[in-house]
Structure formats: C-alpha cells, structure tokens
C-alpha cells in the first residue's frame, strides 16, 4: 500500500506531506495526518457524521479552511475525527468549493490526546497537482 502521509521535521511545529492520486485524495489524507497528530485515529470510533463545506479563493486557502474545520470542531464541539469518507472540490466562480463528509466521535477520556493542534498555517505550504499524483504539504501550529 502506498503511504497516505508522512511527517517531516519542523523545529517548533508539526509538518506533514499527504499524498493522493487526485487532489481530493490528498486532501482526505491531509485530514488523516491532522487527526494522527491529535489522536490515535485507529482507536477513534466512527459514531457520528459531520458534513463540511468550505469555500476559498485559491487551493491553499481551501486546504487551510478545510483542515481548520477539524481544529474548530474539536475545540468547540469536542468532535474527534476518524476519517474523511467523501470529498469533492469544485470550481466556483474564481475560487473553489469543497464539500466533505467526515466520521468520528465525541471526545471522551478513552481517547488519549497526543497533541493539541492550535492552528493550520500557510507556512511552507505546498500543493502539487499532477495527473494521477498529487501531494500537499502543511505546517500546523501545536
């Protein structure tokens, strides 16, 4: 199996690169990397669904807004992400619109917190889109 994401060295924060055959898949795997920083995703149950909708002027802002939703949902609603099960990105006007469905659970004491992601940043962000081979690189503030 090809790797979905990998963590790279970053002095103060957490940096990862997520891969996919399409941009959509790379975004899905970026969400997996994000939740991997915060929890052991294997142990998180898929009890509730969350639908995510974000819009942005360019792909980088779209990625920041998309991942930012999970940071927000954890703090505000105690929602912990297991995985993103579907995701579409469409052109909308001069920008983009993303719609996704995520599965996860409400936080409880059985979910050990591995790291607290405070914000998704633009630092060292890269999005590479080639036919059949895409990756995104993200640094999150922890």
């Amino acid at each position: 199996m090809e790797k979905k994401y990998e963590f790279l060295d970053h002095t103060a924060d957490a940096k990862f690169r997520a891969y996919g055959k399409s941009l959509e898949e790379a975004f899905v795997n970026a969400a997996a990397a994000l939740t991997g920083i915060m929890f052991d995703a294997e142990k998180v149950e898929a009890k509730t669904n969350k639908s995510i909708q974000v819009e942005a002027g360019d792909l980088k802002s779209l990625l920041v807004a998309f991942l930012g939703e999970f940071v927000y949902l954890l703090d505000a609603e105690g929602f912990i992400l297991k995985k993103v099960v579907s995701l579409t990105i469409n052109k909308k006007g001069s920008g983009y619109r993303l719609a996704a469905v995520a599965k996860g659970d409400r936080y409880s004491d059985k979910n050990e917190v591995l790291g607290d992601v405070k914000a998704v940043t633009y630092a060292e962000m890269e999005i590479k889109e080639e036919k059949g081979k895409c990756w995104v690189q993200v640094v999150v503030d922890i």
């Binding site: 703090d75 505000a76 609603e77 607290d116 405070k118």
Partner: peptide, 14 residues
C-alpha cells in the same frame, strides 16, 4: 467564541 467557551480554566497542551 465557540472555541474559547469550553476552554476557560484550562492549561492547553504543547
């Protein structure tokens, strides 16, 4: 506000 509301009185991580 929604992020701040439940977190008052907590230390945070990192």
């Amino acid at each position: 506000l929604a992020r701040g509301k439940p977190q008052l009185g907590t230390l945070g991580a990192g």
